[in-house]
C-alpha cells in the first residue's frame, strides 16, 4: 500500500464528503428549522438533475442550468410549502413521513412521464474538464469545483442563519412560532422560504451530480440514504454537524475502500452506529442546532 494512494484516497474522501454535504444540507436545514423530515428530498435532487439535462439539451449552458434549475425547483417548493407541506407540521410525525414518501412517489411517476425511465447524464462545461495537479495527486477540476460550491454554500448558509436578520427571525420562529408572530415576524413566509431553500439546495446537488453519474427517475433513494446517514451522524438539524458528518463519512468510506473495497458502503452505517453509541444525538446534536 503506497503512501501516495493513501493520500489520494484521503483527498478524495474529503472531496466526496463535501459532495455528500451538498446532498444533505437542504435536508438538515428544513429539519433544523421546522422539525420536519423531508423524505422527498431525494426526489427534488433528481428533479434538479433532470431539469438541468433538459436545459442543456435545449442548448443552454451549464452555468445557466446551474442557476435556473435550483431556482425553478426552489420556487416549486415555495409554492408547495403552504399548499401541502405546511399541513404536516402539526400532525403526528408518522403522517409527515408517509406524506413526504407519497410526495416522492408522485414526483417520481410524473418525472417518468416527462423524462422517461432512461438514465440521463450531462457533461461538465469544457472549462471544468480535465485534471488539476495537486502535487501528490491529480484531481478532477470538476470535482474541485463541486467542493468549492459546497464550501461557498456552507458559508452562505451559515451567514444567512447566524448573521442575517432573516436568520434571526427564522431562529425566533423556530423557537417559538407564536411569540415570533406576535412580534411581527411572518413565520409562514419564513418557513416557506426555508423549504424553498432546502429543496433548491437538493436540486443544486442534482445539477452538480448529473455530470458525474447516470441518473434516472428512480435514483432518489440513493441520495436519500446517504443524506440521512450524514444528518444522523452530524446531529439532526445541526448545520455544522452536517458538514462534519459528511466529511467523516466521506473519508471513512474512501479509506475503507482502499483496504477492503467490499465494505465501502457498509462502513457508512457502521460509522453511524458508532457515533450514535458514543453520542446518541449525533456529533453536534444539541450543541449547535440551528434554533
Amino acid at each position: 500500500m503506497s503512501s501516495d494512494l493513501l493520500l489520494a484516497q484521503l483527498i478524495n474522501g474529503v472531496g466526496t464528503g463535501l459532495i455528500y454535504f451538498l446532498l444533505a444540507v437542504g435536508l438538515t436545514l428544513i429539519f433544523g428549522v421546522r422539525d420536519f423530515v423531508n423524505f422527498a428530498h431525494g426526489a427534488f435532487f433528481v428533479l434538479g438533475a433532470l431539469l438541468s439535462w433538459t436545459l442543456l439539451e435545449h442548448g443552454m449552458s451549464f452555468w445557466i442550468a446551474l442557476v435556473v434549475a435550483p431556482l425553478v425547483i426552489g420556487l416549486a417548493g415555495f409554492v408547495m410549502e403552504p399548499l401541502l407541506i405546511r399541513r404536516f407540521y402539526n400532525v403526528d410525525p408518522a403522517f409527515q413521513i408517509v406524506g413526504t414518501i407519497g410526495l416522492t412517489l408522485v414526483i417520481q411517476e410524473v418525472a417518468t412521464m416527462i423524462w422517461g425511465p432512461a438514465n440521463r447524464s450531462t457533461q461538465p462545461p469544457k472549462s471544468l474538464q480535465g485534471l488539476v495537479d495537486l502535487g501528490v495527486v491529480s484531481y478532477p477540476t470538476y470535482r474541485l469545483f463541486i467542493m468549492g460550491v459546497a464550501v461557498v454554500v456552507g458559508i452562505a448558509l451559515w451567514w444567512l442563519i447566524e448573521r442575517s436578520r432573516f436568520g434571526a427571525s427564522l431562529r425566533a420562529g423556530a423557537e417559538d412560532r407564536d411569540m415570533a408572530s406576535c412580534l411581527g415576524v411572518n413565520t409562514g413566509m419564513l418557513f416557506a422560504i426555508t423549504f424553498a431553500i432546502g429543496v433548491g439546495l437538493a436540486a443544486l446537488g442534482g445539477v452538480l451530480a448529473a455530470p458525474t453519474r447516470g441518473l434516472n427517475t428512480g435514483s432518489s433513494s440513493e441520495v436519500l440514504g446517504i443524506a440521512f446517514v450524514i444528518i444522523v451522524v452530524g446531529g439532526m438539524g445541526s448545520f455544522l454537524g452536517a458538514f462534519v458528518g459528511a466529511l467523516v463519512i466521506g473519508v471513512a468510506q474512501s479509506l475503507t475502500i482502499t483496504f477492503a473495497p467490499a465494505y465501502g458502503s457498509v462502513v457508512i452505517y457502521i460509522a453511524m452506529i458508532v457515533v450514535l453509541l458514543v453520542k446518541s444525538d449525533g456529533l453536534f446534536g444539541k450543541v449547535t442546532r440551528v434554533r
Binding site: 466526496t16 482502499t258 473495497p261 458502503s265
Partner: peptide
C-alpha cells in the same frame, strides 16, 4: 486485483483510485 462494490453504489471515485494505483 479487484474492487467489489455494493449493489446500490453510485460513487466510484475511491474504487477508481485503487485501480489507478
Amino acid at each position: 486485483g479487484n474492487s467489489y462494490h455494493a449493489t446500490q453504489e453510485t460513487e466510484f471515485s475511491s474504487y477508481l483510485n485503487n485501480a489507478a494505483a
